[in-house]
Design a protein around this nucleic acid. Structure first.
Lengths: 212, 212
DNA sequence: TGGACGTACCGAACAGTGTTCACTATGGCA
DNA sequence: TGCCATAGTGAACACTGTTCGGTACGTCCA
């Protein structure tokens, strides 16, 4: 069985490989997943994979970019949910945490910071840019709408950072087990929103009540 | 060269191994560092290392615990600095970020969240507990002193999370290059402190002025 | 002084890894 | 029908962590 795969077939095979790879990565970690095992599940030999991905690093990179896109899809969908900007920002936070705990392997793949991050593929860079834009867009809108005040980029980064930080700490088991994750998440978001809330924001009192 | 090393000599050798290992980890990553290379720098063969550490995982674990202690030392030293509680909390934040960027490999070793984190050594667990306690103590003190209001654990977690999140995002190159890291860090801290500031706190206006 | 003993370390080996390369067999095209 | 490009093979290379038998040497005891 070996003749002239069409472009679409090649794309399908590459996607199938990524799916298998992602399953192995979820189970054994990026380092634990082996080309031979992935190939075996495809009914292949390891060498065959190299026809579709130049190296294991390449495959990881592509799998990572795919996970990134899936992540961005979730965030984007949450941003399309109904309600005002406060609702949207909360929905985005929920979507973020949901994705992280629903697909921890994908989340780790996305945000794992490694030593050898020098040469990232164009796809990966694009996926990262999209996610970064999504995560800051709604804060920008809220500042423009006068709901928050301050430098949008700074507020967005703080909000994003606290989300990511909490998720990472939770996954590493470094959070107080007595405190439910959502409680921490909401109180952190409340702290930042309170800090950045525009004095006259109509919804401020309702959406971001005093912490206690 | 082979007779009855004393307990102290063994401890020295183990420390020397950790130092070499940490250098290799900093250069090549935990996965890239090889037992053979580490042993070679000791003037040894890989097999000899197994007299001092049962496995590479063990060695990584010990190196990680050592890095943890060094990190905690920095935080603790910052906490002993002069000034009031506001000064101390700022000094701790500075010490945190300083350590992260001065010893990125150690920081990554400390906070890297891996799949196979099931069996951590007692030393590592103790080191983690110490760091966690240090990071929350000063927030507790500030709440008790009436400078901040809210649930101390929640505020501390938010503060810690935003710090870690920013560091990680910065290291991964995901922060806007136009925004200096310290600016982000201070504004994030300011947001949280503003959010949690007790209404009547004397220093609030001075230490945490309006963002803009 | 001389032997025995235990230990610090070595060298070779094993199974596994990513990767390469010569090769085969198989379907489409002329 | 025969050619040829190609999808996939299998063996090999260099590397990894790890194990195990062996070796040489300092110390202790006779």
């Amino acid at each position: 069985m070996a003749v002239l795969l069409t472009k679409e077939q090649v794309a399908d095979v590459r996607q199938k490989i990524r799916e298998v790879a992602e399953r192995h990565i979820a189970r054994d970690g990026p380092h634990g997943a082996s080309m031979r095992a992935i190939a075996a599940e495809m009914g292949w030999t390891a060498a065959s994979l190299y026809r579709y991905y130049a190296s294991k690093a390449d495959l990881l990179d592509a799998t990572r970019a795919a996970a990134y896109e899936r992540f961005s899809d979730c965030i984007e969908a949450a941003g399309r949910s109904g309600g005002d900007l406060w609702d949207k920002s909360r929905a985005i936070g929920d979507a973020y945490a949901d994705f992280a705990f629903r697909e921890p392997a994908a989340y780790q793949l996305i945000f794992a910071f490694e030593q050898d991050e020098k040469d990232k593929s164009a796809d990966l860079l694009a996926a990262q840019a999209r996610a970064a834009d999504l995560m800051t867009r709604y804060v920008r809108e809220m500042v423009e709408a006068g709901l928050l005040e301050g430098e949008p980029a700074e507020i967005a980064h703080a909000y994003w950072a606290v989300l990511h930080g909490l998720v990472v700490l939770q996954m590493a088991g470094k959070l107080d087990p007595a405190l439910p994750f959502d409680t921490l998440r909401h109180s952190a978001a409340r702290l930042i929103t309170r800090g950045a809330r525009a004095s006259g924001a109509a919804h401020a009192a309702r959406r971001a009540p005093s912490s206690s």
